[in-house]
């Protein structure tokens, strides 16, 4: 499964001592994070814990006040933001949205939509998609960039609980197939725990990090997410069964 022995290789992206402030409010301080090839790193944390801010800093979308972000120049990034707010007046088909990633071949676009579980949506209107369909289309667009690093901000937010398990399996399969690094922001604690290599528990700073089964017993984790029943938290996902 996970290919964890990549400690000697250069990270796809690394942040050191990242600190972000809005006015007098400290959003993030002293955050260290790195994502390597073939690794799924999951950021979890309560609302307002700075997850999206950290992701935006790593992507170079905002400059952190303290610390530094480094990423080798050749690293291609596929990004799926938390939400799209396409104005209702903008007529935009899924095809057109996907084409913005630079690929126009109908065959390729259909193939990628099939892969993310959103077949036959190519000629649909973006603003009429359901939340879950939109998330899948956003993943497809990120994949079309043939990324070395895939950054997904709450990719399952609008997908039903049943679909989420499949979605995380899909993400793990993408990692296995393309050997890209994946940075995931998620609220699905128990589901994420099972298909991730490393968990970073964030609340303004890194509360704890490491392998999922270790983090899930860390006092700092339990303090933040203590209400989650241990039985669910410790569930380890198996890939060798099917959901038929």
């Amino acid at each position: 499964m996970a290919n964890n022995d990549l400690n000697g290789t250069e990270p796809l992206v690394a942040g050191t001592g990242i600190g972000v402030r809005h006015g007098n409010q400290t959003i993030l301080h002293d955050v260290d994070i790195s994502v390597h090839r073939s690794e799924i790193v999951t950021l979890i944390g309560p609302n307002g814990s700075g997850k999206t801010t950290l992701v935006r800093s790593l992507l170079g979308l905002q400059k952190p006040k303290f610390g530094s972000v480094s990423s080798p120049k050749h690293v291609r990034i596929g990004y799926s933001p938390q939400s799209l707010a396409i104005d209702r007046t903008l007529p935009l088909s899924v095809r057109r949205f996907l084409e913005m990633a630079g690929i126009r071949s109908t065959e390729k676009l259909c193939e990628i939509l099939d892969k993310v579980g959103a077949p036959n949506l190519l000629d649909h209107e973006m603003r009429l998609l359901s939340g879950g369909e939109q998330k899948r289309v956003m993943l497809a667009r990120a994949l079309l960039r043939e990324p070395d690093l895939l950054v997904l901000d709450e990719p399952t937010a609008n997908i039903d609980v049943h679909g989420r398990t499949g979605f995380y399996e899909l993400i793990a399969a993408i990692r296995d197939e393309r050997e890209c690094g994946i940075l995931l922001v998620s609220h699905d604690l128990h589901l994420v725990m099972s298909s991730t290599d490393r968990v970073i528990c964030l609340n303004g700073h890194v509360c704890c990090s490491g392998k999922p089964d270790i983090v899930s017993q860390d006092p700092a984790y339990l303090e933040l997410f203590g209400e989650v029943t241990p039985a669910v938290t410790l569930y380890t996902h198996q890939h060798n069964h099917n959901h038929a």
Binding site: R56, L61, P81, L84, I86, M100
Partner: peptide
């Protein structure tokens, strides 16, 4: 045109592109 449409759809996505 292409860049403007891209920014209109999502500024952060456009920037990472």
């Amino acid at each position: 045109w292409k860049d403007l449409i891209s920014i209109t759809v999502h500024e952060d996505l456009a920037r990472t592109d």
